[in-house]
Amino acid sequence: MAVIRDVMPAFELFQPATTDDALALLAKYGSDAWVLAGGLDSFDWLKDRIKRPKVVVDMSQASGLRGIKEVNGGLEIGAMTTLTEVVRHPLVKEHFSLLAEGAELAASPQIRNQGTIGGNVSQDTRCWYYRSGWKCYRAGGNICFADTPTAINREHAILDADRCVAVNPSDSAPALIALDAQMVIRGPGGERVVNAQDYFVGPDINIMRMTVLKPNELLTAIRIPGTWGGAKFYFEKIRDRQVWDFPLVNVAAAMKVSGGKIDQIRIAVNGVAARPLRLTAVESAVIGKPADAATGEMAGKIAIQGAVALRFNAYKIPLLRNLVKRAIGGVQEAAWKS
């Protein structure tokens, strides 16, 4: 439980105006430095004194990293663009509403007004053992406290676990994967671009990090190609409360359908593994099939292949199956919009 204390422990603060200045600071301070975007993941760590960086590099003044522009029929979204700006942007709404829906369902209005898209995809897991400072695998220890006979693990993983059973909590991540987005990363060696699905890493690759970002690197932008513009989209998030709560499971799909048959599809889910998963087996199984309930039924069964329940999260298996089924077969949902 969060405890209100007076103020956070002291740190040195820098507010660089440019990416270059920020990179220079990260190079100088190395592992002592912490990148701060909107801070809505970061402040918990700092307030709870679980992470004690000596230096905080606050990107809030780097105005070049904020904003959305059209590039070749697609979009380039600066990493410091807030979720609200993403949700309200006319081009996002018109061509890539899948992302607008995912971002709109994250957290609360005030959090979306401040939390950035770059921070949303780079945020750490919410496993409370880890976030309370227990020295588990992810914190460099040699045990997982969420995977013991008495552990409370209702929110944890059903797929691809490897020692750590934490999940990625981002609502924008599966939408970006379904849109074939690319992550633009800058580091001391220059720029590299990785596909959204490869931006995230599971414990098999690196048990202590959620993404491929190195400590001296910055995510500068997210590019969305024109490919899926105006496709048939489906986003659904299941959570306990309709505000604030992280996804128990979410699903994002982009489909091109002609003559009632699925021509092309991307489908990704989150909240079920340590990284958002693109369901390639589902994709190849449904191509050429009608976008109907029967295909959805089949897709749902494929999605849960290999799923393993922990003590309290078995419900996630039918939940995942049903969300995938609905994403493909469709459902008349009354969305809560404003």
Partner: peptide, 13 residues
């Protein structure tokens, strides 16, 4: 003009 949680904003920013 935009609502923020002031508990989660650095005054410096």
């Amino acid at each position: 003009d935009v609502p923020h949680y002031s508990c989660s904003v650095l005054t410096q920013s």
